[in-house]
């Protein structure tokens, strides 16, 4: 179940990369910037800006078996009652302007690679390749492993972005085919991790430690999405450093400053964005936390922004 394939990404591993977003996630981080990637099945998305209204069109209204599409607006655009919508997608084909669409498609390894290989000249130049992101790409271990194995066979550098909240068997299947593993250290305290991400971090940390030890050939890059008042404190950064520094294959630790690009997508999906009052972290704070990481690694650490699907 693939959500999207995004070309020319520069923040998801070395060089120019193509990122393949897989759908489905085992966490519910309140700051999630890719909310359309959370649900494991295809989901309806509605962009009212594209709706031409019930008088001109209105074909979707009788299509919905759940009565989830309605229209009361003065501007006559349809609305979705998300409580009633079951993502059956019958309305999508009835929407000529494409205001109703589906997030998520079933693709084969070959179909994905055909799309990805369009960019291959760029990888050769830049040392880039393919990155599997999500969602949680290790939730579809067989597909991810097959895709990465074949990509590597075709000479691409392979990377994944993962939160590691998956059974260890999945990790064992996927990581042998990975060159670079970008992984999150969201919050150190298990209870706080549970509050903000929906599940605690015990299995995540077990998997991380075991992965560092089991796959010495994989380059690991630790990352923290920096959320104001949640994990933007020195104690967390130092705790992560203490966790990763004993492992020489963890080559870097990046901070991803919280940003709000994901917010509008919550509306398309009829979800509530809970961090509306949060502001992105300040440059000063970033610089101070970066300095702590620099000191631990003895070099400069880049600040990057996570790519959007």
């Amino acid at each position: 179940m693939v959500l999207n394939i995004q070309h020319f990404c520069t923040h998801d591993g070395p060089g120019m990369r193509t990122t393949v977003f897989l759908k489905g996630c085992t966490l519910r981080c309140k700051w999630c910037s890719n909310p359309e990637s959370i649900h494991p099945r295809p989901e309806l998305a509605y962009n009212p800006a594209k709706c031409i209204g019930r008088t001109e069109c209105g074909f979707c209204l009788p299509k919905c078996p759940e009565h989830a599409i309605f229209s009361t607006d003065p501007d006559l655009k349809v609305r979705i009652n998300w409580t009633l919508c079951t993502n059956c997608s019958q309305c999508v084909s009835a929407c000529p302007p494409g205001a109703l669409s589906l997030f998520g498609h079933e693709l084969t390894v070959e179909e994905v690679l055909a799309e990805v290989e369009q960019d291959s000249p760029f990888y050769r130049e830049s040392g880039g390749g393919i990155t599997l992101s999500g969602g949680e790409c290790q939730l579809q271990p067989d597909f991810a492993a097959a895709l990465l194995e074949e990509a590597r066979h075709r000479g691409m550098n392979t990377a994944i972005e993962t939160a590691f909240n998956v059974p260890w068997e999945n990790v064992e299947k996927v990581l042998p085919h990975v060159d670079v593993c970008l992984h999150d250290h969201k919050i150190s305290d298990p209870e706080r991790h549970r509050k903000w991400c929906g599940a605690d971090n015990r299995r995540i940390q077990e998997n991380q430690k075991r992965a560092y030890e089991t796959f010495p050939g994989v380059k690991f890059i630790a990352r923290t999405p920096l959320i104001p008042g949640v994990n933007d404190d020195e104690a967390h950064i130092r705790a992560v450093l203490a966790f990763i520094r004993p492992h020489p294959n963890v080559i870097d630790y990046e901070l991803l400053p919280y940003f709000r690009f994901g917010e509008s997508k919550y509306g398309f999906l009829g979800r509530v964005y809970e961090l509306e009052d949060f502001q992105p972290p300040s440059e000063e704070l970033l610089a101070r936390l970066r300095a702590i990481i620099d000191e631990a690694f003895g070099r400069a650490t880049a600040i990057t922004r996570k790519t959007q699907p």
Binding site: P48, A49, R79, Y266, G267, F268, V272
Partner: peptide, 25 residues
């Protein structure tokens, strides 16, 4: 500004180019 976009249960929420944008409180 666009980054203040607040989505909601609102079927009225829409993208940056759209007319009905539900912004934060």
């Amino acid at each position: 500004p666009a980054h203040f976009l607040k989505s909601s249960l609102s079927p009225g929420a829409t993208g940056p180019a759209g007319a009905r944008i539900h912004v934060g409180r």
